[in-house]
Simulated assay, not measured.
Amino acid sequence: MQHDVLPHPATPAAPTPGPSARRSHIALGVRDSFSAGLGIFPLGIALGLLIVQAGLPWWLAPALSLAAFAGSLELLLVGMMAAVTPLAAVALTVFVVNFRHVFYAFSFPLHLVRHPAAKAYAVYAMIDEAYAVNASLPERERSAPRLLAMQIACETYWVGGGLVGVALGAALPAPIKGLEFALCALFTVLTLDAFRSRKELPSLLLAGASATVALVLTPGMAMFTALLVFVGLLLVRHLTTARGAADA
C-alpha cells in the first residue's frame, strides 16, 4: 500500500515587529549604545587629535571612520600614514588586526536582519563595542531594529568624535600625549562589563592565558596568536563540557 508523504512544514520566520514595536526597539537600541558611546566618542576625539598632530588633512578623520569603521585599525593607520609605511605592511596590519571579526560572525545575530542592504551594514558595523553590547543582551530581547539602531548610534559617536577631535586639534597650541591608551582603556571597560553581565570567569581566565602565551611566544603578532589560542581553548572547553553533559 502506498502512503502519501507530507512535506515537513517550514520553520516559521521570526515575526516582523509592527511600527509601534519597531520604534520601541529602535529606542532600546539607541539606549543600548550609551554605555559603548561613553568610550567610542572620546576615542573618536583621540583619533581626530592624532590626525591633526600627525600633520594629515582634517577630512581623513571622517573618511577613515566611514571607510573602515574600526577604531583600533584607524589609530594604527594614522601612524602608518604619517610614516609613509609600505602598502604591503599596511595590508598585513589590516589583516592581522581585523582578523578577530571572523570569529565575531559565528555568534553575532546577523540572522535577525533580513534586508540585504541592512544585513550588509550590520556586517560592516560589527565592531568590538557592538559585539560586546549585543552579547550582554538576552536572546529573547534581540531584534533587527534594535541591533541596527545600536550600530548606527555607535558609528555616529565615532564620526562625531573624530570631527570634534579635529576641531580641538586645530585649536590647541600644543600636542596631547598618551592618547593611544584610550583604546586600551575602552577594551578593558568592555571586558569588565561583559564579565559582570555574564559571570564567565572561565572565559576570562582562558583569554588571559591566551594573551600571556601570545606575548611570550610571538610578541610581534600577539593579537593574531592570542585569537587562535583562545579559539582553540574555547573549542576544548566546549567539547569537554558537552562530553560531561552526555555522560551525566
Rank of each mutant, 00 (worst) to 15 (best):
V78F: 00
V78C: 01
G79M: 06
M80K: 04
M81C: 09
V84E: 15
T85R: 00
P86N: 01
A88K: 02
A89R: 03
A89S: 14
T93P: 02
T93K: 09
T93C: 13
V94F: 10
V96D: 12
F99S: 08
H101G: 10
H101K: 02
F103S: 03
A105P: 11
S107P: 11
S107M: 12
P109I: 01
P109A: 05
P109H: 08
L110E: 06
L110S: 11
H115F: 06
H115W: 08
H115Q: 12
P116L: 02
P116M: 01
A117S: 09
A117G: 11
A117E: 08
A117D: 10
A118G: 15
A118K: 04
A120W: 00
A120T: 12
Y124K: 09
A125H: 03
Y131E: 05
V133L: 04
A135N: 10
A135D: 15
P138M: 05
P138Y: 06
E139Y: 09
E139M: 14
E141D: 15
R142C: 02
S143F: 01
S143V: 11
S143E: 05
R146H: 10
L147F: 00
M150Q: 13
M150R: 06
V159H: 00
G161E: 03
G162N: 04
V166I: 09
A167R: 12
L168N: 03
G169D: 07
A170P: 05
A170I: 15
A170S: 14
L172M: 08
A174N: 13
A174S: 13
I176P: 07
G178D: 08
F181V: 08
A182G: 04
A185P: 03
A185F: 05
L186N: 02
L186S: 04
F187G: 01
T188Y: 11
T188P: 14
